[in-house]
Design a protein around this nucleic acid. Structure first.
Lengths: 351, 351
DNA sequence: ATGAAAGCGCTAACAA
DNA sequence: TTGTTAGCGCTTTCAT
């Protein structure tokens, strides 16, 4: 059995309350006794029992991180951000992988509550799975600080962190326009996805603001997978008047598009431009060099943790906090160098 | 305040011991009272307090997973394996990211023990960091089941899971030989790394068994990074008699090699063969298609968790368990199709 | 089948 | 400055 404060008290010959005080740097204790106690504790190899402490303080210094898929390179970076600030503040994090499965998420949420975590950071599986996709109301049953990331709170009851997807879609499309591409398609992921539809809106806004036609046949949606990108690109190329550029719902889709293009021997970026979304790690690899919209993933994790810790150690500031981060255009090798400055394009179109 | 078994007891009008028995499906309790208690518990929204339970049972159903870098695509797959079997058995896992930093690892190890996890799965940061690289003796201070993965236990005191790195190096090199490459180089990672030197040994064995010369100038080591692969390849190409193939310490290195080759307009696989190690996720992507040695990452995590849970629920089987998994050759597009069957090569060489 | 009570290791309020 | 004590929520032994 491990050594407890009672053991120490016995050795030092004092009450174990005194030991507790010494160990926790509480005021009102003789400097000498404190030192003596510390020394003995050290010598006996004392390790405080966080379980016992948690039982009385009602705080475990533990948070839960609930994510859909740790293998998807998007999430580890988030986890890293969360973990860094958590550990900095003496918190430990439970990793919960839901595999986009509502049932598994439910089980985890229950376990986390039973283990009395101090708060939860979550990308709800309900964003894609379950009978009522996009509904977060079940999260309200949780009597604990909850922060949502990579998506808004559908109920408006929780703090959340996400990027400005609309703006992301806008700058992606703007970049393609300014690079001189003229028939720009959008290949999205799940239509039901909130972020996907925002990105689409941004795409549409950009076209409109440049007085370029919005063509329905150039807007297609399916899945967030590479195969989906490949197949939809294949379809687009069959059009009588095919596109000369595409903005995709994420980087994975873009990879499928690139593969299709390569197969058809269409030159990128000379004759065709591609912009992805997310800036996952291998988009930057030499063999890929995908132009894309970067999400500040690490920052998202970091801020999510900061907001959560704030709510946990809640000062008066009780209230939902909405954090919107800025997406950023990363220009690589799948789009041409800009052809002319922003304004010139407008003139050309108006003539 | 959350509802406790006392609240339930009051409502049902029985002792709280009875409530505990009912909730835990303990024998020796009237079927009707049990049902009544379950119903009331459900109705009151009772959630057992795992902290309190842990204090008395001395079990938290929690394990710690200590890894160097969750962002490195190698580790999330392991985490997934660990997590799957853990959750299957009602365990939750603490994610601890050491960033290859011994100090951070120490802090985490302390926290995990204080939080009374039931066991720990670890890829020791000491494999690369710290004054005594490769020494695991500090792990012996942990009075808890510990399982090491992706490396052996230097002290022989802990169970471990790793792959047969020597064999991996052997089959990688054998594949290159059989594909007809004749001057095969080895670009390794950290020389101090156990796995790296095993892979090198496998490389040497393969050359020997095919009666091919072992050339010192073709064996270089530096880092496990892409830049390292690029730079070392650059050097090798300057040799009076440069290699026509390379086996690398991991996939990341191979990517750097590939980039260098592309820059020099050396055709892969026609004129140059490359085999990596690990089979990280994007090695399989259309634009990369790297031939490599696959490590069963998910399985490693799975087995690590299984071994650990076994030790936790330790039957009589107290004892170190060594698990060696088999590497597997994944042939893609960076090596030629086999030129001739295995035996033919031998004949050729003997003639 | 049920209840009473001890105790897991600790913090914190109250006394001294 | 130090000690005494209650109690966090639960499991478990021992009575009944």
């Amino acid at each position: 059995m491990a050594v407890t404060i009672k053991d120490i008290a016995r050795r030092v010959d004092c009450s174990y309350a005194t030991v507790s005080r010494a160990l926790n740097n509480k005021p009102g204790i003789n400097q000498q006794t404190r030192e003596r106690i510390m020394a003995v504790a050290q010598e006996m190899g004392y390790q405080p029992n966080a379980i016992a402490r948690g039982l009385v303080t009602q705080r475990t210094h533990t948070i839960g991180l609930v994510i859909p898929d740790i293998v998807n390179p998007f999430f580890p970076e988030i986890a890293r951000g969360v973990e860094d600030v958590a550990s900095e503040h003496g918190y430990t994090v439970f990793l919960c992988n839901t595999n986009w499965n509502m049932e598994k998420e439910t089980v985890y949420l229950k376990a986390l509550q039973e283990k009395r975590v101090d708060g939860i950071i979550i990308k709800p599986a309900s964003d894609f799975d379950g009978p009522t996709t996009g509904d977060h109301s079940y999260l309200e049953d949780i009597q604990l600080p909850v922060v949502i990331f990579s998506g808004q709170s559908s109920t408006g009851r929780h703090s959340y962190i996400e990027i400005d997807n609309l703006r992301g879609g806008f700058i992606a499309t703007k970049h393609l326009i300014e690079a001189g591409y003229r028939r720009i398609a959008f290949i999205g992921g799940r239509k039901s996805s909130h972020s996907n539809s925002e990105r689409l809106k941004g795409y549409q806004m950009a076209l409109e603001s440049y007085d370029m036609p919005l063509t329905d046949e150039l807007i297609v949606n399916h899945d967030f997978y590479s195969e989906s990108g490949f197949a939809l690109m294949e379809e687009l190329l069959k059009l009588p008047n095919p596109p000369d550029a595409v903005f995709t719902g994420n980087d994975i889709i873009a990879l499928g598009v690139l593969e299709c293009l390569q197969l058809h021997r269409i030159r990128v970026p000379e004759d065709f431009g591609v912009v992805g979304f997310d800036n996952i790690i291998f988009s930057g690899y030499p063999q890929i060099q995908l132009t894309t919209i970067a999400q500040p993933k690490y920052l998202m994790g970091k801020y999510a943790a900061e907001v959560l810790l704030n709510e946990i150690n809640g000062s008066a500031t009780r209230g939902v906090r909405k954090t919107i981060l800025e997406p950023e255009l990363v220009i690589r090798k799948t789009t041409r160098k800009l052809k002319f400055p922003f304004n010139a394009v407008k003139v050309v179109n108006h003539s």
